[in-house]
């Protein structure tokens, strides 16, 4: 027999945890609104205003503490960006890397557009070097990254190398599992043209692999050929009754998959 009362208590705690974010947003919104209205109506009902003012700071504070959680990753991203710009300045060899990586990663472009922010930061960091380090450990990682950046690029090369290795293996034995693997990896890397090519190859070897058809049509959508993706999926569904393909088709229709 289960302990219902205990479970119910845990469930209520779970629900409360789940709703706190929604509630705090809702309450702070309504407080803001009520302040807004009380200001616009103004001075007529002095009784009500003090109440509202009392509640306001508490709620706003709680809202702030919620929001604070998110900026952390953003500032991390900024620090990473700093090093990449730093690197460019220091070692000319990185230009090579940039060229190589340009073809793979769309988000490198974002970094370039972020430059104005980062330059400021670089200056800030360089000056108070010693003092800041003593006060706040958080800043320390900012001095390590030259190495980190290298690591990241090595990782990229590794997945590329992995892919090449598997492609050579695939050329030897024509196993569709390998070409499918390559298609999926390319898809993950955002290289939809290659993902399309390898899924196509896989389908030619074995036309009954559902996940290969799915990667194939997903790549088509990503390459801007939505109509072709839809017609391919329809044909495939007709002969396979694949539920995965049907779900994808619905998602494409509904615009959830773009």
């Amino acid at each position: 027999m289960l302990n219902i009362t205990d479970l119910e208590k845990r469930w209520i705690r779970y629900k409360v945890k789940f709703y706190i974010p929604h509630l705090s947003i809702f309450i702070s919104l309504s407080v803001i609104l009520s302040i807004f209205f009380s200001f616009s109506n103004n001075t007529q009902e002095p009784n009500d205003i003090p109440h509202v003012v009392k509640e306001e700071p508490l709620l706003v504070a709680s809202k702030e503490s919620k929001i604070k959680v998110t900026p952390v990753p953003i500032s991390k991203q900024e620090t990473r960006v700093i090093h990449s710009t730093k690197k460019v300045k220091l070692s000319p060899s990185l230009d090579f890397m940039k060229k190589m990586q340009n073809s793979i990663q769309p988000y490198y472009n974002n970094e370039v557009s972020n430059k104005p922010y980062t330059v400021q930061k670089v200056q800030k960091v360089e000056a108070p070097k010693i003092e800041v380090v003593e006060k706040e450990k958080v800043l320390i990682p900012e001095y390590i990254p030259p190495v980190k950046v290298k690591k990241i690029s090595i990782k990229r090369q590794n997945t590329q190398n992995d892919i090449y290795e598997i492609i050579t293996r695939f050329k030897k034995n024509n196993n569709p599992a390998l070409s499918l693997f390559v298609a999926k990896k390319y898809y993950e890397l955002g290289d939809y043209q290659q993902a399309y090519n390898y899924a196509l190859i896989t389908n030619k070897i074995n036309m009954e692999i559902e996940s290969s058809w799915i990667i194939f049509t997903k790549s088509l959508v990503k390459l801007g050929k939505r109509d072709k993706a839809i017609s391919t999926l329809k044909k495939y569904i007709k002969q396979s009754h694949s539920s995965g393909a049907r779900i994808l088709l619905d998602e494409i229709y509904a615009g959830r998959f773009k």
Partner: peptide, 9 residues
């Protein structure tokens, strides 16, 4: 599936 034994046709 990319592992060694499963390469063969």
């Amino acid at each position: 599936i990319a592992k060694e034994h499963f390469q063969t046709r």
